[in-house]
Computed example of a mutant assay.
Amino acid sequence: MKGTRATALSLAQKCKNILASNWQGNLNTIKADSKGSKQEIHTSRVKYLLKRGKPYIWVPDKDKHNLNTVVDERASFAVASPYPGPLASLFKTMKKLPARVALTGEVEALSDEKVRSTTENLREVLTSEQKAMVGSSYAVSGILTSSTFGNTSRSEILVELLDSDEKYVVYKFNISSCMFIDGNVGNHEVELDDFQASKADKLSPFAAKLIDGINQSQIRRRTLLVLCLAFLNVNAKDACVLSVDRKGFDVLVKVPSHGGEYNWKEFRVRFEEEAADVERFCHQLVKMEERALEIVKSSSGLG
Rank of each mutant, 00 (worst) to 15 (best):
R270L: 05
A32N: 09
L302C: 02
G248F: 04
L161A: 06
Y83K: 12
A236H: 04
S34I: 00
V253K: 05
V244D: 13
R268M: 11
V115F: 11
E290M: 06
V159F: 15
E160K: 10
L144W: 03
V253E: 04
C178H: 02
L229K: 14
H283R: 12
E156F: 09
L87P: 02
A12Q: 07
A200E: 12
S111V: 05
K172Y: 05
L11Q: 06
V125Q: 15
G301T: 05
V71E: 14
K167W: 02
F195C: 06
D250I: 02
N184M: 05
I30M: 05
L122R: 04
P55A: 11
L9M: 12
S10H: 08
M179T: 14
V190T: 06
L11F: 13
I30V: 00
Y168L: 08
R5A: 10
L192R: 08
F281P: 01
V226T: 15
T4S: 02
K54E: 14
F206K: 08
P86D: 10
S217L: 01
L224I: 09
W58F: 14
E273T: 13
S89G: 15
T43Y: 01
C15S: 07
N263D: 15
A208L: 01
S141C: 05
V296M: 04
T69M: 13
P86W: 02
A109Q: 12
Y83E: 07
G186P: 01
R270K: 13
